[in-house]
């Protein structure tokens, strides 16, 4: 379970998270929507400790992420994150991209890591690209590789930060299908996305962020069908 308690985060004078409270249960899919600069991506990087926070607490399975005593390298093994820019490692083949962390971080032997990587790559539809270098892949394929790379660490949680925003429109579908599949398999996920219809289909709950505040949260039917907050209404009207 991920517990976010009154989290505040500033970049210099700019406060991007102004006291966020959110609990995500095991097996739940929570989508975060909102305009750019609303703090939604920052929240994800705070959850896995890539960014420090200024106040509040984030607990993952009871471990406080930003406590000094927390081994972040260990904690990150159970929180996978995929970014808008997929960050493929260009000097490694697709297979090596996926086996690197299991081998070096988990100390897995090569054969075992490759077996897991192959399984995950097949899972995301890249079973025939194992020996290919990422630069030869399309954006959508690279993004699916990044998802497989995160999954190879067998995380308990997956965070997705606008993973389709940098893709050509015709490639968005294949990545969303992969996310949908993960959701159906019961993966606990927090997704930041601009794909509204996808958010509606896949989410257990949808949160709307506005200027660093979680203005509204609810089941998709309610949030999309009957938004309570005036900013939610404005936002949804603007993206439709």
């Amino acid at each position: 379970m991920i517990e976010i308690q009154n989290v505040r985060k500033s970049f210099g004078d700019l406060e991007v998270l102004k006291g966020i409270d959110l609990n995500v249960n095991k097996g739940e899919v929570v989508t975060v929507i909102g305009g750019s600069g609303s703090g939604k991506s920052t929240l994800l990087t705070c959850i896995n400790g890539l960014e420090p926070i200024n106040a509040g607490k984030i607990l993952v399975d009871g471990t406080e992420v930003h406590a000094k005593s927390t081994d972040l390298n260990k904690l990150r093994q159970k929180i996978g994150i995929v970014f808008q820019q997929w960050n493929a490692f260009p000097h490694l083949t697709v297979l090596e991209n996926v086996t690197l962390a299991p081998r070096k971080v988990l100390g897995m032997d090569k054969a075992k890591a490759e077996a897991i990587a192959e399984k995950q790559l097949k899972h995301v539809g890249l079973g025939d690209k194992l020996k290919t270098y990422p630069t030869r892949l399309s954006g959508g394929q690279q993004q699916r590789m990044a998802i497989a790379r995160a999954l190879a660490m067998s995380p308990d949680y997956m965070l997705f930060d606008e993973v389709t925003s940098a893709l050509d429109p015709q490639l968005v579908g294949e990545v969303l299908e992969t996310l949908q599949m993960l959701a159906e398999e019961g993966m606990t996920m927090i997704l930041v996305t601009h794909e509204m219809s996808f958010a509606r289909d896949v989410s257990d709950r949808v949160a709307f962020f506005h200027q660093g505040v979680m203005a509204e949260i609810g089941v998709p039917e309610q949030l999309f069908g009957d938004p309570q907050h005036v900013e939610t209404q404005k936002f949804l009207a603007s993206v439709r």
């Binding site: 890539l50 260990k74 990150r76 970014f83 960050n87 490692f89 660490m153």
Partner: peptide, 10 residues
């Protein structure tokens, strides 16, 4: 690139 590595627990 480093960020991606750190995210994987490196």
């Amino acid at each position: 690139q480093t960020r991606a590595g750190r995210s994987l627990g490196m």
